[in-house]
Design a protein around this nucleic acid. Sequence first.
DNA 1: AATAATTCAGGACATATGTCCTTTCCAAGA
DNA 2: TCTTGGAAAGGACATATGTCCTGAATTATT
Lengths: 231, 231
Amino acid sequence: MKEINDFEQVKSYLSAHQIESIFNEQILPHLSLYTFEQGEFICSQGDASQYLYVLVKGKIKVYTTSAEGRTLILSFKTPLEVIGDIEYVQDINIINTVEAVSSVYMIGVQYHWLRKYGRNHAPLLQFLLDIITQKFHLKTNSMSFNLLYPVEVRFASYLLSVSFNESDSLNKEQLRISIKDAANFIGTSYRHLNRVIGQFCTEGLIERNKGFILVKDGEGLRALAGDNIYE
Amino acid sequence: MKEINDFEQVKSYLSAHQIESIFNEQILPHLSLYTFEQGEFICSQGDASQYLYVLVKGKIKVYTTSAEGRTLILSFKTPLEVIGDIEYVQDINIINTVEAVSSVYMIGVQYHWLRKYGRNHAPLLQFLLDIITQKFHLKTNSMSFNLLYPVEVRFASYLLSVSFNESDSLNKEQLRISIKDAANFIGTSYRHLNRVIGQFCTEGLIERNKGFILVKDGEGLRALAGDNIYE
DNA sequence: AATAATTCAGGACATATGTCCTTTCCAAGA
DNA sequence: TCTTGGAAAGGACATATGTCCTGAATTATT
């Protein structure tokens, strides 16, 4: 983590995401811009929490680790997103580990100042409500989805969701995904996901060459996934 | 659903739950008290949403039904709880079906009035934030739990959680649970849950007689469940 | 280039879980 | 009392998924 001492950048990110109004005059001076490198932790499960972060650039993943050491990825997030909000409101330790997937920029502010100056600032409260209800909705969906459908369907959905979001930067439908991440995300084992990938290849839905996965038949995947797309 | 036209009761429920301050003078006149019978729907997945409900007495269950007709119970809730909050903030249709498990009392208010008079009322916003973050936290836990652990463990946890909460009213550890509900809650089939129950009986953890389940070895269940208790 | 270390793909098998169906039993109604 | 319907329990089997392990492929290191 590195702090970037440039208040102009803070302001410009706020304005880019149209959230200038959520922080009032008293809080503004206590905002800082932080950057995290790829792979760096933003916060770790169980730690005491102190900062509310607003993700303004880059991509992060949120995951939990069970007592037995199994990992479950709960979500990937891109701006605009908030980290530490639940912990702030509930006054509890960090629930999930958050890790930078790309290089990441976040605006951070200590709970301390939020408690002091933000408690009754309606725009901030509304903003948090909006963000959290979105998260909640998304989580509700993925929870039902994970429990109600087999791995095939979840993976088809995952592929679609990833290929849509990433494809801007990459070659058409060619995308590098981490199979391990994918397995942890849809809550299955690496081995089993591999099996499903093999099956998809046989059926001509995708093709794989050395770590990459090429979506050959998006329509086929969509048919498999049904309406359910990880949003 | 039946409306109870008695503003005194509304006030007394508000005060019993110490939430008098969340509704301001303008909104108060638009609060109503509703009662639902056991089995009655409070709201149904997909419907247009119009009311925010505060559960003040009784027990409800929240579930979702997949396109294929499978049911997944997302949670059982007792006071203090809010229904329709996500839908209010996001302005979307009802996400999950909510059904009264016992006879239920709820304070209802139309979104209309909330939008008109509640938008900037910090106590209301804070209250919603608090409730929703709690829900979110709970859901995060149950999601990881469901994905990370086998049915045995989930059921052990479920039994513990239910026996603690219900046991006030009932005979010691004797509790009537709906096995179907339990199966839908932990996201498995009735058949499989039955199998696990059989196994638990063999191991002397529980005993069953005609629809009832008797917890014989709470410690054993706790050992199985590990630290993970729903909620 | 040669070797070691790591990642990747998949085989073999065990286990968990789902589907379908049958039997038993009990309660509601004729 | 006699049906009849529907819960409850569980048998038989198919399928989904997990665990452990091995060999090939790839990358890093000397």
